[in-house]
Structure formats: structure tokens, C-alpha cells
Design a protein around this nucleic acid. Structure first.
Length: 427
RNA sequence: GGAGAGGUGGCUGAGCGGUCGAAAGCGGCGGUCUUGAAAACCGUUGAGGGUUUGUAGCCCUCCCAGGGUUCGAAUCCCUGCCUCUCCGCCA
């Protein structure tokens, strides 16, 4: 949610900033509602004041043994008026709230203009795409060739967009997770957390998935209702919501959490896109980095966090580039996002493997995540950030395709070999 | 799943339907005392919102959440959520 004061006081300027990401704010409707809210709120509070004062007078009169019947009658009437005013105010409030919840975050000034991914800007690249003296295969052919990857089996068990792995490939997948967690814990000072994989609607509202993106989620039915519990689409949701309705002491910051979870995405509307292989699945594993920092520090933190994710790719020896998303391509809650894209020889292109974002106070306001500013002693909204460090399934794909040989074998990156009992090659 | 108890400020914990945003203790902050510290003593100490040029004043809301009763609800009623105890079941 963006700052309601900002919406009230700088409505036109805010609308222009939102337009950069292709969002049209209906300023006329907002202003009308806001005007009404103001009038109704003042009126309602005046009535409440009146009622409070009169009720107290009744209390005093009763204590003094006076006749209170006429006083009561007078306040009764007030009660009706108050009830009506409150009802109208509540209506207007909810309308305003509904609008506010569907307004995306304002792009930071440093975010490039543009409508879609074609306007994203490459910031830097690392490593060289490998030169093969044979025709490189994609991960599907490699995995199925080794008899270690099976999409048909998963289709039998569940349906499309799931997969099964076996033997050393499943182990490599697990090794990747361990390596990522260890790296972030040991070298980047993150604290590991374990969280529920099912969250309630309040949590999803807090990070911004609800109310707008319910279609991307798997809802869980319970007691005949399916609007309460959902499978997490990313660890971002439970981990960031640890801070919901909390006021942190300054000493606790910055907060750095790393969390490995499965992620579940319905990806409604993505049919026909990346149908082959494990690039786009309903279930995948991810190691997620989440930070909460004082407001003045969040852009510095974004650079650091992006660097932490990059380190994973560098240690594995995977070529990648860093891309600044343009205003039109950013996610709903983000003020600024860097995507990490890894080179996939099977597709001959860079593909997203991590997305690192600064949400500023957008999520914090939704979930009332605050810290006590030592300057004033007063609670203020935190800034939250997160990034994949990394998406495990896609990292596995990158390793398979970049480290294949002509025989269709997969060479284990040296940094992972200790996690594999020294195994150097699969196949 | 069955039976019972309970959810109050940073913590512990009082609270008869009116003078309760809430006693008391602890903690925090400021001060007195002290060479310094401790102790003692004094003072102070929740959050959100509206109005407003205003960190001034005035006002509103918040005692788990949502409804209800009432002139008036932390206190009474209903629903939900959560916690605890006992039994059952279970990894």
C-alpha cells in the first residue's frame, strides 16, 4: 500500500508516477471519495463526542440520585444519527481501502522507463557462455537420457507441470539447496528460519499477493471455505509476515532471514508458456533471502542482497547477467527490482533465476511492520526486501545444461562435490 | 475428536455496566543523592487516526477479532481465532 497521505496531498504527481508502470489511477473517483470521507469522519467523530459527553452526564446524574429518564431520551435520538453516520463512513472507508489495496507500488526514480521485458536494462554480466564443440542438449533430453528425470511419472501422480527426479540428480538438487543455505548463513550473515507452507489470507495481503492475484495461488479448502488458507507461492510470504504487527527495537536491525521452502504456483494464464521441462512448474524449491532494514538503508541493502544471490552463481561457475526491470515489468509490490538471468545453452538465452526487490514501506504498511526510531523513540514503518538466492530447480537446469559433455553426462561443479561424497560426474 | 480454563499496556497482573486508556509491581526514560555506580527517593512512560501551516490545542478509536445488548461495554450476550490443562489419536 502506498502512503495514504501521499495519495491525498500529491494525488496528481502520484498518478503520474504510477502511469510509468502502466497503472491508471482514477483520481476523480478517489478525490470524490476522499472528500466524502473527510466530511463524514468529522461529522461522525463530533457525534461520538456528543454522545460520550451526554452519557457521562447521565452517569453523574445517576450517582447524584437525579431522575435520568429525560436525559436518556435525548441521547437515544443521537444514537440513531450516529449509527447512520458510522455506517456511511464505513462504506466510504472500505471503498477507499479497496482502491488502495489494488494500487501497485511507486517505481523508484532509478527504475528505467518501459512497458515490458524488452525495455529492461542490463546492468552487468558475469562469466562467458560455454562454447561447445557439439550440439548442446537441453535439460529435458539430458535428464531423460540419463533416466533421472521423469515428467510422465509426475503427470501420472498429479498432472502437468510437475516432475520427478531420481538418484544422483535428486541428490544434486538437494546438494544445491544445502550449498545455498550454508553460503548465506556462513558468509552473508543470514539467519535460517523454518516456516509453514500454508498461510492465511492476511499474510498474503501483507506481502501483496492478495487481493489482486488470487488466481496465481493454490487455495486449500477447509470446512467448506477456500478463501482462508493457501499454499505459499514463495517463502517471502511467511518470512516477511513474521514482522506483521510487530514493532522491532533498533538493535534488532537489519534483519536477515534465509529460508528454504517449496513454492506452489497455479500460474493461471501461463499455459503455452515454457511447457517443456522444469522451467515453469506448479511446485518448485527456492532458497529465499528476506531483509528488513531502516528506511534510509534499503537501497544499499538491495545492492548487497543482489550481490548475495550473485555469489551463488559465481561459486557454481554459471554465466549470468543482472538486469534492472523497467517500470512496466516490475511486480506489484516492488519499488525496484533486479533480475538475475542465467545462461541456458539449451535455449541459447538468459533466463530469470532470481528476482531481488526493494519494496520500501509498501509491504510494511500493509502488514504494519515497524521499528522504533531511536531518534524520536516513535515507531516507523520498516523497509522490506527479498530475493531468490536462488530458485533451486532453475539452478539445477542451468548446471545440467552448462556442465554437460558430448556423452550427455553432467559434471558436478567443484563447490558441490563435497555435498555429493566427492562425485564429479553424473552419468 | 471429547471435557474444562483463559486471552488486559514491553512483561507480570488487578479491574463493581458510568468518574477506566485502564490499579499495582517490574522494566524503560529523566532527575535528586554519589568521586562513580548501586540502593533509595521524585517524576515520567502504549498505539493508531481526524482537524490543522502545525512535533500546539481540541477530538475520535483501540483492553484477541467480528457482531449484539445499553444513554453508556475491558466489564453482559453471540460467533470466530488463539493459548493452556486432562482424555483420545498420532509421526
Amino acid at each position: 500500500m502506498i502512503d495514504p497521505h501521499r495519495l491525498r496531498n500529491e494525488l496528481e504527481a502520484t498518478a503520474r508516477q504510477l502511469q510509468r508502470r502502466g497503472f491508471q489511477l482514477d483520481t476523480g473517483r478517489f478525490e470524490a471519495l476522499e472528500q466524502e470521507r473527510k466530511t463524514l469522519q468529522v461529522q461522525t467523530e463530533a457525534l461520538q463526542h456528543e454522545r460520550n459527553a451526554r452519557s457521562k452526564a447521565i452517569g453523574r446524574a445517576k450517582a447524584a440520585g437525579e431522575d435520568i429518564a429525560p436525559l436518556k431520551a435525548a441521547v437515544s435520538e443521537l444514537g440513531e444519527q450516529l449509527k447512520a453516520a458510522q455506517a456511511r463512513l464505513e462504506e466510504v472507508r472500505q471503498a477507499l481501502q479497496a482502491i488502495a489495496l489494488e494500487i501497485p507500488n511507486i517505481p523508484h526514480d532509478s527504475v528505467p522507463d518501459g512497458e515490458d521485458e524488452n525495455h529492461n536494462v542490463e546492468i552487468r554480466a558475469w562469466g562467458e557462455p560455454p562454447a561447445f564443440d557439439f550440439e548442446p542438449k537441453d535439460h529435458v533430453d539430458l535428464g531423460e537420457g540419463l533416466d533421472l528425470l521423469d515428467f510422465d511419472a509426475a503427470a501420472k501422480l498429479t498432472g502437468s507441470r510437475f516432475m520427478t527426479m531420481q538418484g544422483p540428480l535428486a541428490r544434486l538438487h538437494r546438494a544445491l539447496t544445502q550449498f545455498m543455505l550454508d553460503l548465506h548463513i556462513r558468509e552473508h550473515a543470514y539467519r535460517e528460519v523454518y516456516v509453514p507452507y500454508i498461510v492465511n489470507a492476511d499474510s498474503l495481503r501483507g506481502t501483496g499477493q492478495l487481493p489482486k492475484f488470487a488466481d496465481d495461488l493454490f487455495a486449500i479448502e477447509r470446512d467448506g471455505r477456500c478463501d482462508e488458507f493457501y499454499l505459499i507461492p514463495t517463502a517471502e510470504v511467511p518470512v516477511t509476515n513474521l514482522l506483521r504487527n510487530e514493532i522491532l527495537e533498533h538493535e534488532a536491525l537489519p534483519l536477515r532471514f534465509v529460508c528454504h521452502t517449496p513454492c506452489f504456483r497455479s500460474e493461471a494464464g501461463s499455459y503455452g508458456k515454457d511447457t517443456r521441462g522444469m522451467i515453469r512448474q506448479h511446485q518448485f524449491e527456492k532458497v529465499e533471502l528476506v531483509q528488513a532494514v531502516p528506511p534510509g538503508r534499503s537501497y544499499e541493502a538491495l545492492e548487497e542482497l543482489t550481490g548475495h544471490a550473485e555469489t551463488v552463481l559465481q561459486r557454481l561457475g554459471l554465466p549470468y547477467r543482472v538486469v534492472a526491470l523497467c517500470a512496466g515489468d516490475m511486480g506489484f509490490s516492488a519499488a525496484k527490482t533486479y533480475d538475475l538471468e542465467v545462461w541456458l545453452p539449451g535455449q541459447r538465452q538468459y533466463r530469470e533465476i532470481s528476482s531481488c526487490s526493494n519494496f520500501e514501506d509498501f509491504q510494511a504498511r500493509r502488514m504494519q511492520a515497524r521499528w522504533r526510531d531511536p531518534e524520536t523513540g516513535k515507531p516507523r514503518l520498516l523497509h522490506t526486501l527479498n530475493g531468490s538466492g536462488l530458485a533451486v530447480g532453475r539452478t539445477l537446469v542451468a548446471i545440467m545444461e552448462n556442465f554437460q559433455d558430448e556423452a550427455g553426462r553432467i559434471h558436478v561443479p567443484p563447490i558441490l562435490q563435497p555435498y555429493m561424497d566427492g562425485m564429479t560426474v553424473i552419468g
